[in-house]
Simulated scan of single mutants.
Amino acid sequence: MATRPIVAIVGPTGSGKSDLAVQIALAVDGEIVNADALQFYRGMDIGTAKITPEERRGVPHHLLDVLDVTQEASVSTFQTWAREAIADIHARGRRAILVGGSGLYVRAALDVLEFPGTDPALRGRLEAEADRDGIETLRGRLRAVDPVSAARLGDARRIIRALEVHELTGRPFSSFMPVRQYAAPAVQIGLDLDRAALHERIAARVHRMADAGLAAEVSRLAAAGLREGKTASRALGYGQFLRVLDGECTPERAAEKTIVATRQFARRQLTWFRADPRVHWLDALSPDVVGQALAVVRSADAMSGR
């Protein structure tokens, strides 16, 4: 039997995605699949604003707390996990609701997207070359085989990955970029709000995290290997509060730096999601945002004949 479209709730951090997803799930007999890369990590609760068991209101949540902080999040592995979770939810006659602000992870779950393999030995050689010769030397090599990626990628990790893919496949890394074609029926709902309101919500959220014990959470995770985690250690708030542990920063200054970094991240999220014409945007602060979202879902169901 054909399944109804996957519902994806997207938008910037602090816009209320998790709460809206729960309310939609309660209304449509749904289960939630997490697409926030940092909420995969066990123990990273306060700093990621991970939804609590009480806030889930009995709605099953998938792909929370599936990695240790020392493990690296992989978008290709997530694609497999997410599609398996979605298939299981639909096989039981329930509705899959994807929620998160990690743009590439959302695309991996929803869209036709191919991931090239990896080679740890090759990756290690390229990382050693970057340490020895400098990342600009590697960028020059990438420019010769994939000028699109060389112009687009800014950090060393992605430049190394692009060279790894080219050496493994003979194809430019840019040729693996996603296209806007759903792998299965889906509808995306985006939460938006004006910049001043978003900035205010982000600042309040970071201060709540600090008051709730973010510094203590970072201290516990540092003892569990947070610094060694390539993905987890770069998470907003965690890197800033590691400096508090090292005596390089006050908690107040760490909170301020986290607010600035989170605002910058939210701007990048909005740029990513606004570039996708398939997203149905709603005012996150509308008193009827739940009703409006459910109307979008019902319209998508009608169009798909479900």
Rank of each mutant, 00 (worst) to 15 (best):
D65T: 03
D65E: 08
D65A: 03
D65W: 01
D65Q: 01
D65C: 05
V66S: 01
L67H: 01
D68E: 13
D68H: 09
D68N: 13
V69I: 06
T70V: 11
V75I: 05
S76I: 00
T77D: 14
T77V: 09
F78S: 01
T80R: 15
A82P: 03
E84R: 15
A85E: 11
I89R: 02
I89W: 04
R92G: 11
G93H: 05
R94S: 09
R94M: 06
R95H: 10
R95N: 03
I97M: 03
V99E: 09
V99K: 02
G101S: 08
G101N: 03
S102Y: 06
S102G: 06
S102M: 02
L104H: 10
Y105Q: 05
Y105K: 04
Y105A: 02
V106M: 10
A108W: 06
E114D: 15
P116K: 05
G117Q: 12
G117S: 15
G117C: 05
T118P: 00
T118M: 05
D119C: 01
D119L: 10
P120M: 06
P120G: 09
G124S: 09
E129H: 13
E129I: 12
A130W: 08
A130Q: 03
D131E: 15
D131A: 15
R132C: 10
R132D: 14
R132M: 14
D133W: 13
D133C: 11
G134D: 03
I135M: 07
I135T: 07
I135W: 06
L138A: 01
G140R: 14
G140Y: 09
G140Q: 14
R141D: 13
R141H: 11
R141T: 09
L142P: 02
L142K: 10
R143T: 13
R143S: 09
A144H: 11
V145I: 03
